[in-house]
Amino acid sequence: MSGHHIISLKYLLGAATALVVLTIITVGASFIEIPRPFDLIVALSLAFGKATVVAAIFMGLIWDKKINTMALLFSLLFFIIMIGITLLDTLYRDVPFWIYS
């Protein structure tokens, strides 16, 4: 099914509750001393978890045509390529002096 799927209240309220709980966990985790880089990994994992809930339920990707999910995943793929190619340059050179001027 696609198009006119009506998302049940149970799913919508459940998603909102899950997002608030995950936000509380995210804030709570930031107050715990987690050694680097694991603090960033924990924060980003929670953010990806929340993003998945929003995309799957609020944006209705579970019930939609799969091509919409494909579009989102391809945007992430190209985003990762953009990060990767940029870091291949910036990580292997000295920090340019002009950023401190």
């Binding site: 603090d39 993003a51 995309a55």
Partner: peptide, 16 residues
Amino acid sequence: VDLIWIFLFPLLYLIE
């Protein structure tokens, strides 16, 4: 817009 904020919040506010 909500999704983007979900990433901005930990990346800008929560690095301690």
